[in-house]
Design a protein around this nucleic acid. Structure first.
Length: 255
DNA sequence: AACCCGTGCAACCGCGATTCA
DNA sequence: ATGAATCGCGGTTGCACGGGT
């Protein structure tokens, strides 16, 4: 089955937006809200595709956007988030108020990639370029429940694999590869079992997710510091040098 | 002055996910 | 349950601009 085009291309403008188009779009959204993007162009008197209007609003016209250069702190946060999430630009943008996914993606490709390369770090793997080919790497993979050696209450962490240099990605679309060095020692040995048994959905902060299999939702779901890397606790933990206090990635919004 | 090339960024495109009838 | 419509994301493209020759 073919997909119908999102708009009639013959009667829409393309390319750079004019001031007048911007004004019309802003005025319409101020008056009516974002609503349905498909019908918005016609209602606003714009000869533009709905997708184009949405992009223009989100990436350029939204009043809460922070224009201007990225700060050093933002740089480092983007690098750390990218090491965790890969090219999930919308999730990364969710942790940087006033920045858009498109902006961050562009910034990554034009500045940060080069910055990391200059540091001798592979921007794709976040490993030292020289080291990347030679290192034995311990990876953690996430898998469906039936593959889970911890059973249905497990972390969604199936096993540790020592491979070199090929890495197996069980959940490639999430790209949450974890490097372990050395094994994390929890400070509180009396850790409650339910705190250690978050399913993968909960480890990402999706406690209400229908895929949740760890049964913690009913009462006293752990609201702090869980995590796939084995670090669990109320004080947060250091994952890739990133304290969960600074990055509670379990709460990343999954829109 | 003219041309070339690299860079940065806005915008487009294709497609998967989600919603709706 | 199914298929169409719509949304949203990530990759890619195209263009303006500035610096070098």
């Amino acid at each position: 089955m073919g997909r119908s085009p999102c708009c009639e291309k013959a009667h829409t403008n393309k390319g750079a937006w004019t001031k007048e188009e911007d004004d019309r779009l802003v005025a319409y959204i101020r008056a009516h809200g974002e609503g349905c993007w498909r019908s918005l162009p016609k209602a606003a008197g714009l000869l533009r595709c709905g997708k184009s209007c949405r992009l223009r609003w989100i990436n350029y016209l939204r009043p809460d956007l922070k224009r201007g250069n990225f700060t050093e702190e933002e740089d480092e946060l983007i690098i750390k988030l990218h090491s965790l999430l890969g090219n999930k630009w919308s999730l990364i943008a969710g942790r940087l108020p006033g920045r858009t996914d498109n902006e961050i993606k562009n910034y990554w490709n034009t500045h940060i990639r080069r910055k990391l390369l200059n540091r001798g770090i592979d921007p794709a793997t976040h490993r030292p370029i020289n080291e990347a080919a030679a290192l034995d790497v311990t990876t953690i993979s996430f898998a469906k429940e039936e593959d889970n050696v911890f059973g249905s209450a497990g972390l969604g962490l199936i096993k540790e694999e020592v491979k070199s240099p090929v890495r197996e990605m069980r959940c490639p679309d999430l790209n949450l590869e974890l490097r372990i060095s050395p094994p994390y020692q929890h400070q509180n040995e009396s850790l409650k079992i339910e705190e250690r048994s978050l399913c993968f959905a909960c480890s990402l902060g999706l406690q209400s997710d229908k895929d949740c299999s760890c049964n913690i939702n009913g009462g006293g779901s752990s609201s702090t510091g869980a995590g796939g890397g084995g670090g669990v606790g109320n004080t947060g933990y250091d994952f890739l040098g990133l304290k969960t206090a600074a990055l509670d990635y379990r709460r990343l919004e999954m829109k």
